[in-house]
């Protein structure tokens, strides 16, 4: 258990260092800049590594972790292994919130206000999906429907009013870490830390939900209240990620399953491991997206799918059972 945690942390660290050394710009003596962060601080090389690459790597780790935790909350709170923020409408709701705010000139992307609007959109969309669904299957079908409607609204709005400060349709559909700056991190970090801390706190109540709503009530707890709290945390985490890097596919679905395979279904463990796995996958995917065919960037969402999906399939096959 502790060995697994340390190996995961070591893997994240290892790939962070590798990611620092890779990129579109050629940097000579790259390792001396990486292993000595104060060496030659005014040089272009230093700036590329510590002002451009490092914040992006930090963002990939943070956002991957958030998506991993968001997936745990989505699956746990709905008692459904197929639930994820993209399917429940959470991500699309967040995108609607930000885009509406920017187009109405209320907020700018990267501000706390944008995260707040995203959180409101995310929460409303999730609650809408959940209140319309009458069964586990409906949750997925209605969620796909709600997502499709909201995604279409974002696309149409941006096609009609093309404004660079509202980002592109492809940003909101596929995501990109290319626009991350140190300033983004300043807003993201506290929101995410708070979200992760609350997710950890409510995790045991989400374990309880797996017994079914009736059993939860028999024990004196209100399952809807547990769920609402989980949705608020979920919406906050997704608001932070979507408002800064758009919607990144598949990670929130895959990371919890992989974590469950490694450490079992207890949600406190899952919050930690799914975060670590999400961070690792997004870090590798983002590094590949900028380093494979420089100076072009590959769409990050496609790489997370390409990386996450095979791991997910292998995990589920070896686990023998989707619920493992």
């Amino acid at each position: 258990m502790i060995k697994r945690a340390i190996s995961l942390a070591a893997l994240v660290l290892f790939f962070s260092v590798v990611a620092l050394s890779l990129g579109a710009a050629e940097v000579s003596h790259v390792w001396s800049y990486i292993f000595n962060p104060f060496h030659d601080a005014s040089s272009t090389s230093h700036q590329i590594i510590w002002q451009i690459r490092a914040p992006r790597i930090a963002a990939a780790i943070l956002i991957g972790a958030c998506l991993g935790i968001a997936g745990v909350l989505a699956q746990g709170s709905t008692n459904n292994p197929l639930a994820d923020p993209a399917i429940l409408g959470t991500s699309a709701g967040a995108a609607v919130g930000v885009v509406a705010g920017v187009l109405l000139n209320i907020v700018t992307i990267g501000s706390v206000g944008a995260v707040l609007l995203a959180a409101i959109g995310a929460l409303l969309a999730t609650l809408l999906t959940f209140s319309l669904a009458r069964s586990a299957l409906q949750l997925i079908t209605i969620g796909i429907g709600v997502s499709a409607i909201l995604t279409a609204l974002v696309g149409l709005a941006l096609s009609m009013i093309s404004r660079p400060d509202a980002r592109s349709v492809s940003f909101w559909s596929f995501g990109s870490l290319a626009l991350v700056t140190p300033k983004t991190l300043v807003v993201l970090l506290p929101v995410m830390a708070l979200g992760a801390a609350f997710a950890w706190k409510i995790a045991p109540t989400i374990d309880l939900l797996s017994l079914g709503d009736e059993s939860v009530r028999h024990m004196g707890f209100d399952p809807q209240r547990i769920r609402r709290r989980a949705f608020i945390v979920l919406a906050t985490l997704i608001a932070a990620t979507v408002s800064s890097v758009g919607s990144i596919a598949f990670l929130a679905l895959a990371a919890p399953h992989i974590a469950r395979y490694l450490v079992g279904p207890q949600n406190r463990k899952l919050v930690f491991y799914s975060a670590a796995i999400g961070a690792l996958i997004l870090l590798i995917a983002d590094t590949a997206s900028r380093a494979l065919v420089p100076p072009n960037e590959l769409p990050i969402g496609l790489l997370t799918s390409l990386l996450g999906a095979p791991i997910l399939i292998l995990t589920l096959k070896r686990g023998g059972d989707i619920w493992r």
């Binding site: 017994l211 939860v216 028999h218 024990m219 207890q266 619920w323 493992r324």
Partner: peptide, 20 residues
């Protein structure tokens, strides 16, 4: 209740401790 279908691989000990 009757006919409980467990669907996540919690151990029996973990299920017993939930919410208690």
């Amino acid at each position: 209740m009757q006919n409980r279908n467990y669907w996540l691989s919690y151990s029996a000990a973990e299920v017993l401790a939930m919410g208690q």
